[in-house]
């Protein structure tokens, strides 16, 4: 039972990472696609101002997930880290470049540098989720062997992996665009509201198509998981689909209420659907389950306690951060919009 709880914690942390960091990566994606300097300036500024104060905190979810994964399920962790080492190194490369590009581009002088670092930031926002997706795909397709000694291309370039890699990118773009629609509304910025509405609709259509394709592919690559998704986890899968359709409808109707929660719920439903469908298997195709692949009891208990403490300490802090951010009390020193518009209230 403790292993189930820790497994749920891992899924919960991954859900938060998917939603928060997903929006973050997606911001980079839209930055990349925003066009030339002149045309792209305004949307880039909006993207920049909405993610700057929070990107670092969002990042920590990933670290937490990694630590929980290796502490609670060490054998599976070691296997994934060995078999899928290549895409993971590439994802790391993306993380480093992205962080550096993001941190530095504010400080550099001159359009050349700004442009270069901006491009680095944007491009790595695309690569990181893609490679992470291929790793998830490798696990889902049962390509990670327990006794893997080498990382091979075949592990993470199966159709399932590539589809899930693409899906990750599309979902990031979707989350970011939906988030930015809300941000534009908050600023009474009609032009960008429409701008990101269009992009949100496009991304959600792409994400929907890729999910269906991935599901169909799983029918061959991991029949058990496919059965789980269309059986035990069917309710969650349907929920995800319904959320996607509802968001599309709201976007088409020009409505904005419920847009963000619905899109987040849709993504959460997919992550949980995966977890439920796969339960109690840890690594498909290896016979490793929650029962035989978990750390000793005391470690699991300690992880649960740490997680509870984290929720108690970090939860309110996050709320404070988002609250301050929402009231626009946090902004970079070089912020472009009028400082007098919102004051202390």
């Amino acid at each position: 039972m403790t292993a189930e709880v820790v497994g749920a914690i891992l899924i919960a942390v991954l859900t938060l990472y998917a939603i928060l960091a997903g929006a973050d990566f997606g911001g980079g994606l839209w930055d990349l696609l925003a066009g030339g300097d002149r045309r792209g300036r305004a949307p880039r500024t909006l993207i920049d101002e909405t993610i700057t104060p929070v990107w670092e905190a969002n990042h920590v979810w990933l670290i937490f997930a990694l630590v929980v994964f290796w502490s609670a399920f060490p054998t599976a962790f070691a296997a994934v880290m060995t078999a899928a080492a290549l895409p993971l190194w590439l994802a790391i490369l993306g993380i480093v470049l992205r962080g550096a590009g993001f941190a530095f581009r504010k400080e550099v002088e001159g359009l050349h540098w700004e442009r270069l670092l901006g491009a680095v930031f944007a491009l790595s926002s695309l690569l990181t989720p893609f490679f992470m997706g291929t790793v998830v795909g490798a696990v889902a397709a049962g390509k990670v062997a327990l006794d893997a000694q080498r990382t091979t291309l075949a592990t993470w370039t199966s159709p399932t992996s590539l589809l899930i890699g693409g899906l990750f990118v599309a979902v990031c773009g979707y989350l970011a665009a939906v988030f930015l629609v809300g941000e534009a509304i908050r600023r009474d910025d009609d032009r960008h509201e429409r701008y990101f509405r269009r992009r949100a609709a496009l991304a959600s259509a792409a994400a929907g198509a890729l999910s269906l394709a991935a599901l169909a592919e799983l029918h061959h690559s991991n029949h058990q998981l496919y059965h789980g998704l269309t059986g035990r986890a069917l309710a969650l899968v349907l929920l995800a689909g319904a959320c996607g359709l509802a968001v599309l409808a709201l976007l088409a109707l020009g409505r904005s209420r419920g847009l963000r929660p619905l899109s987040a719920l849709g993504v959460a439903a997919v992550v949980w659907g995966w977890g439920v469908a796969q339960y109690p298997t840890l690594l498909p195709g290896t016979g490793l389950t929650l029962a035989n692949g978990s750390a000793p009891h005391a470690t699991l208990i300690a992880l649960i306690v740490v997680f509870a403490a984290a929720v108690l300490l970090v939860g309110p802090s996050f709320l404070l951060l988002f609250w301050l951010h929402g009231r626009r009390l946090l902004e970079s020193e070089h912020s472009s919009h009028d400082p007098e518009r919102v004051g202390w209230r």
Binding site: I63, F64, V67, W70, S71, P74, F77, P296, T299, V306
Partner: peptide, 21 residues
């Protein structure tokens, strides 16, 4: 990690809380 992950992971998970904060 395979052998001692459940041990060395504990301090790192606590570290996670403080990095968050």
């Amino acid at each position: 990690m395979r052998r001692y992950g459940p041990v060395i992971g504990l301090p790192f998970s606590v570290e996670g809380i403080f990095f968050f904060l």
